[in-house]
């Protein structure tokens, strides 16, 4: 029901967008038109979605998708010379920066949750992740239950910290939460032995492990604590802009281009160190591509 409604909304807006000359621009599109620039919010260590390459330029799967969105904005507004600005964001400041107009779309690894939808909007999902944990192989930790009494790293402001408690096996154990300021920082805590595990989206963990000094020292273990969809973050209640973003992304998914981009970033060597994440497309993601959705998790 929800999906078909979304599809309907997309179609309706697409019809509306077909005749932009008559329609008054509103929201983000109006802002972009007036300022002559669009600001893309990006992350700095969300490998391989949005991170800094060897020249400290933001790159990644989400950045490539957003580049297509920016192209669509250019042709929509007939502004081929639209200036594209980049602004690094963190998990703490991305929502306020979206609300105060500093960024126009955020391309990273932001989970679309119902709680966040109170404050911002999301495009259709371009990735589905599972929350699991990264541990050192020599720690012997295999499951949530093994974490009892151990320090566990979590990145503040992300959705993972409450999940251990919600898991059946995690109910009766006590962990000592320690806080990293970013994913790389939390991972460093595991690497350096400060924390026993880092609970996070599995793909981000895979990216961090691939980039570490000795990738073979680490493993991703445990059951999925939750599946979470990623979407491009937008301003809330901005239907015309959301319609344009969704139309672009759905187009990429239907044409197979999104899958090519997926292969480029998840199944091939990626900068800056030419490591290969070898992270095949999950059935959940295949389903998400087949029938795009923007329904957030609870």
């Amino acid at each position: 029901m929800r999906k078909s409604l979304t599809a309907l909304a997309v179609c309706l807006s697409a019809i509306g967008l077909a005749a932009p000359a008559h329609a008054e621009l509103t929201g983000t599109l109006q802002k972009i038109k007036e300022s002559g620039s669009i600001t893309v919010g990006h992350r700095e260590s969300s490998v391989p979605f949005s991170y800094l390459d060897a020249d400290q330029k933001p790159v990644g799967y989400a950045m490539d998708l957003c580049a297509k969105v920016v192209d669509a904005v250019k042709s929509e507004l007939k502004m081929p010379n639209l200036q594209v600005k980049y602004q690094a964001v963190t998990s703490q400041n991305r929502i306020p920066l979206m609300q105060n107009g500093t960024i126009d779309l955020e391309c990273g690894s932001t989970t679309n949750s119902v709680a966040r939808q109170q404050q911002v909007g999301f495009s259709v999902h371009y990735f589905i992740t599972s929350v699991r944990m990264a541990v050192r192989k020599d720690s012997g930790i295999k499951d949530i239950g093994d974490l009892n009494g151990k320090p566990v790293a979590t990145t503040t402001g992300t959705t993972s910290d409450a999940l251990i408690k919600q898991n059946e096996k995690g109910k009766h154990i006590d962990v000592k939460n320690i806080y990293g300021k970013d994913h790389a920082d939390s991972f460093l805590m595991v690497e350096s032995g400060r924390a026993a595990a880092f609970v996070m989206d599995d793909i981000l963990l895979a990216g961090l492990i691939a980039n570490s000094k000795n990738p073979s020292d680490f493993a991703i273990v445990g059951p999925s604590l939750r599946d979470e969809p990623y979407g491009v973050m937008l301003r809330k209640d901005d239907a015309p802009f959301k319609a344009l973003v969704d139309k672009t992304l759905i187009g990429l998914m239907k044409s197979g281009e999104a899958e090519k981009l997926y292969t480029k970033w998840f199944m091939n060597p990626i900068p800056p160190r030419n490591v290969n994440l070898n992270f095949p497309m999950s059935p959940a993601l295949k389903a998400a591509f087949a029938s795009p959705s923007d329904k957030g998790v609870e």
């Binding site: 700095e44 260590s45 991170y51 800094l52 400290q56 602004q87 690094a88 964001v89 963190t90 400041n93 970013d182 790389a184 920082d185 991972f187 460093l188 690497e191 961090l208 980039n211 570490s212 000094k213 800056p272």
Partner: peptide, 19 residues
Amino acid sequence: AIGATDFFGAADKITQRDL
């Protein structure tokens, strides 16, 4: 703290990536 790339911020960004 706001992600601007000053001298220390630059070093921190490299740390984030290269660990």
